[in-house]
């Protein structure tokens, strides 16, 4: 402390401040240095004080709810047949930066619950524009688009590599279970319930048809002798 004081005096610096002087000038600095020393030396002994990991060799466990960019979910093995998206355009309309681009198909295919629906012929997401706000996931009525958790996405081409098409976006339901297990379980339960409802309705419709047939009169044979 004596060293500091004499340097200050020699340079002619005038301190004009009010300080609650405890006892020794410089004590505040010393107290601060004691804190730093405690943290530095403590990081060798206590895990709590060592707050960094050697990324990319070590990684912190990823939090389940984390979201990065969206992806399309498909059930089963075939990504084209099992794609849940029915091309309803709701996510395209609600997306704030308008980064989703959909074109509807002309034919239909069964969707996740078994009804015949349209499907997207083109489904592009411009990832350089997407801001991961998750509004598309929130408004999708068919649980077709969910948030992925992959963040190591560097590409060498900032043109076409950042416009993801349907094939790039389609990932399986198993992948969804791996990254968001609790959410995926809830979605699966809901879809199973809806599938059961649709199947029950189809069965009821199928049973009603043969019951209606015998009531119709037998057709009159065409008079072919004439």
């Amino acid at each position: 402390m004596l060293v500091i004081l004499s340097v200050a005096k020699n340079l002619g610096i005038v301190w004009n401040f009010e300080v609650e002087v405890d006892s020794v000038f410089g004590e505040g600095i010393l107290k601060g240095l004691a804190e730093t020393a405690r943290n530095f030396l403590g990081s060798y002994v206590s895990k709590k004080r060592l707050t960094t990991v050697q990324y990319p060799e070590e990684r912190l466990p990823q939090i389940e709810a984390y979201r990065n960019f969206p992806f399309l979910v498909y059930d089963g093995e075939d990504w084209q047949q099992g794609l849940r998206c029915v091309s309803c355009f709701i996510c395209e309309k609600e997306c704030p930066p308008k980064c989703i681009f959909i074109e509807k198909s002309t034919d239909k295919k069964p969707d996740a619950v078994g009804k015949l629906q349209f499907y997207p012929k083109v489904f592009n997401i411009d990832v350089s524009v997407c801001m991961s706000c998750q509004i598309c996931v929130e408004v999708c009525p068919f649980d077709a688009i969910k948030m992925d958790t992959d963040y190591e996405l560097s590409t060498t081409n900032r043109f076409s590599a950042l416009l993801w098409d349907k094939h790039h976006l389609a990932k399986s339901n198993e992948h969804y279970h791996k990254i968001h297990p609790t959410e995926a379980a809830v979605v699966d339960a809901q879809l199973a319930a809806e599938r059961a409802k649709v199947a029950a309705k189809a069965k009821a419709a199928a049973e009603a048809k043969p019951a209606a047939a015998p009531a119709a009169p037998p057709p009159v044979p065409a008079a072919s002798e004439k």
């Binding site: 300080v19 609650e20 000038f25 410089g26 505040g28 804190e35």
Partner: peptide
Amino acid sequence: DEFERLLASNEILMARTQG
């Protein structure tokens, strides 16, 4: 407490910020 002890009565901080 630790954060305050680090800097609150630090003379350099007080000289630079008081007044």
